[in-house]
Amino acid sequence: MHVENLLSQSPSRYLDVDQHQRALHAEIAAGERGDTVIYSEFAPVYTAGSRTDDADIPDPDVPVVRIDRGGSVTYHGPGQLVAYPLVKVHGRQDVVAYVRALEAAVMALAAEYGVETRRVEGRTGVWLPEDPSGAPDRKLCAIGVRFAKRTTMHGLALNVSTDLDDFDRIVPCGLRDAGVVSLRDLGVAASLDEVADRLHPHLERELARFRTPADAVTGA
């Protein structure tokens, strides 16, 4: 898969990246370009997917961008790696299987850093193991996707060194009985560029079965 690395010293505006994602998505859906992953870091923004309830945003002063992915409201900001795999899907469009593949890629990445993660039944994303003390589940990586014209959009948001206090103004992903965590909180000191470089081969592996054969794509 091609890489569009938008990581820089200055986090990008969400709407700028979203516009770029949609332009690439149109090309990929039309068979004019090969599958591409966008890696980015956003300036602080709250985005709300199709399953967002008003109660998920208890502070009416929080500015929220409504978008066409699944899931509820979440926060994006500095220190968080956002990855948007734009993949022209070959065969059955299985959204659940695709989400599980994204989860598997992030879980494999976390294992490289010595971090044990798991899935939680009935919830998307990547989570820490259950706390024996009964503390709430903590999410390391949120996932929200959309299939349009047989091509995927949006993707995952992995907390690398994110300031987690910024999640306090919302109910992250609409889950009132869960929290969030970052790799930094777990003792991992890594830059977003490093994490993106290490995540990419796992995405390549996990998403291979969804991808249209290269000889069917003009720009591959």
Rank of each mutant, 00 (worst) to 15 (best):
D16F: 08
D18G: 13
H20W: 07
R22Q: 15
H25G: 04
H25A: 13
I28C: 06
A29N: 08
G34K: 03
D35P: 10
T36K: 06
T36W: 02
V37E: 06
F42V: 00
A43M: 15
T52H: 04
A55P: 04
D59Q: 14
V62Y: 02
P63G: 05
P63Y: 02
V64S: 11
V64I: 14
V65E: 14
I67C: 11
D68V: 13
D68S: 08
G71C: 10
G77S: 07
P78C: 04
P78Q: 07
P85W: 00
L86R: 15
V87K: 06
V87F: 05
V89H: 00
R92C: 04
Q93H: 14
Q93C: 13
D94E: 11
D94L: 06
V95E: 15
R100L: 01
A101G: 10
A111K: 15
G114S: 12
V115A: 12
E116I: 13
E116M: 12
R118D: 09
R118L: 03
V120K: 07
E121H: 11
G122K: 11
G122M: 10
R123N: 04
R123G: 06
T124R: 09
G125T: 11
L128A: 02
L128W: 05
L128Y: 05
E130M: 09
D131G: 07
S133G: 04
